[in-house]
Nucleic acid binder design. Structure first.
Lengths: 192, 192
DNA sequence: TTTTCTTCTTAACATAGATCAAGTCTATTT
DNA sequence: AAATAGACTTGATCTATGTTAAGAAGAAAA
């Protein structure tokens, strides 16, 4: 049950078995059915979720009612509305299961306590935040500088499994284009 | 010389004078003239810079030779090519002074050592990375969901000083539009 | 099996913003 | 003072992507 997370932590920091055993009691296993919400806009995001199994998306809704996929998460990723989680203010995002999910939930207060008890854990989340920042900056850069077609190609290269698992609507939204456009892009790609 | 940084650190973490005095010897003051580069594409980013005075931009160059502003930094901000800095691989970004600058430079190795000596400093950079991640995610969200005009309006609201100080070309690039388009957006805004 | 969703595709038309090409107005250099 | 460069604007035209609308094919529900 904790194997995936343990391996993930240990790939980035030094963590003794005792330290890991201080963490596990704080982790709550949660099952979430496809289409169900993990959090909804307006709630305070109290927990971060580590994905043991399944796939989820976080998305915002703009003033025209359109959804925009902010993050896609599959096994071995964390997902949360970090803004809400860190500031403990109501969420502007919603998170929804795209497939049936098995999640490990970690509460805000517990995490703060663990930071003080286990310095390597704070290092882990520092690194995680840094990587997430870099990745988002690169995504922004790609969004500003390349065509829809190139963005799709890049996604295929970087995350081929996502392209296969996740419905086209959500991928299109993640790329910042309409499903219709993505469909045309695909058609174009098959030609050549 | 260290007042701005000290205040900044202390607004986010608890830090004793002794701890701060462990940090200062590692900070090197650097003056950078307008239009000069802090780092150029291809170099490894060895240091992060805290801006005491002035303004800088980091930017990428795409395969058509077009520049894209990734980050704008003024007083009280940090700037670096974080990807290069964290992975210690050659930079894909360049950083250039938009105005004459006074910077405090902190080396990668020194920072790693300081993390071990001063846990609050690691906390500071964890928080910094988290905020940067959130801000970039929101910027991406805005870029994907709103018109050039609305993005410009939002920038004026969030960072009015930047809009006044920084040349239009760079603001346009930061917003992901051409200078011509931004000029038209401005014209449109003055009308109403 | 029939009906109803989902997911994806296709086509015709509309538009925000890009591109290309000048031109103005200041500031800086010579 | 003249010349050059920098910062911004304006207009005409073009294009990638959005919008609207419809339909196909498979999956799920009834």
């Amino acid at each position: 049950m904790f194997d995936l997370l343990k391996a993930n932590l240990r790939s980035k920091i030094n963590l003794s078995d005792e330290q890991f055993e201080q963490i596990t009691p704080k982790l709550k296993l949660k099952f979430l059915k496809k289409k169900k919400d993990l959090i909804m806009e307006g709630q305070v995001c109290q927990q971060v979720a580590f994905v043991n199994k399944g796939a989820l998306r976080s998305y915002s809704v703009d003033n025209k009612g359109q959804q925009h996929v902010i993050q896609l998460a599959v096994e071995d990723y964390w997902i949360a509305d970090l803004y809400s989680f860190l500031t403990q203010t109501p969420s502007q995002l919603s998170i929804e299961a795209i497939e049936d999910c098995e999640l490990l939930m970690l509460r805000y207060d517990d995490l703060q306590t663990l930071y003080d008890k286990i310095p390597p854990l704070e290092r882990y989340f520092r690194k995680l935040a840094e990587r997430a920042y870099i990745a988002t900056q690169q995504r922004l850069n790609v969004t500003l500088s390349t065509s829809a077609e190139d963005r799709y190609k890049e996604l295929i290269e970087k995350h081929p499994s996502i392209v296969q698992r996740i419905p086209l609507v959500h991928i299109a939204s993640y790329l910042g284009i309409t499903p219709e456009s993505l469909s045309r892009v695909r058609k174009q790609l098959y030609k050549s």
